[in-house]
């Protein structure tokens, strides 16, 4: 009999799921493209004119050209960088806040719990889209404002889930056993409970990532997002006027690029949930 930690077991289950593995590969490819692009190794010359205005897709220009004769393909790649960076930034802001507040509230209860519950109830009472457009408007349009806005909205779900799960685990006998051998609060919470609820962070991040991408596209479409750089949202905004002239490739390029990453994250979230915590279904 071989020995496996629960993580390894979960990974083996995940690896058996071909569709999930394929989705993971797609996600990794997108990350790879985004990193190369942000290092300036690819698509750094996206603003160059490569041909005539509004050329239809061809072997030379995969996704055609836009009104200024720029390659739509390169713009899609630049947009990938923007979209992925938003997902990463939102996670970097949301995870520490959500996990810390959720864990403290769930573990200690009492007034800490009352305060944290009030805080996330308040934040979730303002509809996300209102909070997003308000924050980006106030902080001044641009990618930085989008990061902050998404960070400020996406910690809420994670916090709620972690709080609930920590409350459940707090009562389990293994945590009581840790107390019985002399372990303090810090050990019980961070060494025992958190590793047992950490899968929620992974599942939630995978779900929040697609929300972040979708939100960035909408904010950029509304003109609140990235300025002076292509994003899938601004490309769709361009397409709004182009479509009647039969220029459909900007819309198609952005939609197709978005479709695959969202699809991959959708499938991956489901597969992660099944592999890591089948009980989380429907929450």
């Amino acid at each position: 009999m071989k020995t496996n930690s629960l993580w390894k077991d979960a990974f083996i289950r995940l690896a058996k799921d071909k569709l999930a593995l394929f989705s993971l590969v797609i996600v990794l490819i997108y990350f790879f493209i985004a990193i190369l692009s942000s290092l300036g190794l690819i698509a750094s010359d996206w603003s160059q004119e490569v041909g005539a205005s509004n050329l239809a897709p061809s072997m030379e220009h995969f996704f055609g050209t836009d009104i200024f004769g720029r390659s739509v393909f390169l713009k899609v790649i630049r947009g990938t960088q923007v979209a992925m960076s938003v997902g990463v930034a939102a996670s970097i802001i949301a995870i520490p806040i959500g996990v810390l507040l959720g864990a403290l509230a769930g573990y200690f209860g009492g007034w800490i719990d009352d305060f944290v519950t009030w805080l996330y109830t308040t934040f979730s009472s303002v509809p996300n889209i209102m909070l997003l457009i308000s924050i980006t408007l106030i902080l001044g349009k641009g990618i930085f404002a989008v990061y902050i806005a998404l960070g400020a909205t996406s910690w809420v779900t994670l916090c709620r889930l972690i709080r609930g799960e920590v409350m459940k685990h707090k009562e389990r006998e293994y945590v009581q056993a840790a107390g019985a051998i002399g372990g303090g609060h810090f050990r019980k919470l961070f060494r025992h409970i958190l590793p047992n609820v950490s899968h929620i962070i992974i599942i939630n991040t995978s779900m929040q990532f697609q929300i972040a991408i979708k939100s960035e596209v909408i904010l950029s479409y509304l003109g609140l997002g990235v300025q002076g750089e292509p994003s899938w949202g601004t490309m769709i905004d361009d397409a709004k006027l182009e479509l009647v002239r039969g220029v459909w490739w900007q819309l198609a390029g952005a939609t197709v690029a978005m479709f695959f990453i969202l699809l991959a994250f959708n499938i991956l979230s489901d597969a992660l949930r099944d592999a890591l915590d089948p009980k989380l279904k429907g929450k």
């Binding site: 979708k214 909408i218 769709i236 952005a254 939609t255 978005m258 695959f260 969202l262 959708n266 489901d270």
Partner: peptide, 10 residues
């Protein structure tokens, strides 16, 4: 899942 992966804007 496929339907959800297409942007609302599209």
């Amino acid at each position: 899942i496929a339907g959800m992966s297409i942007s609302a804007l599209a």
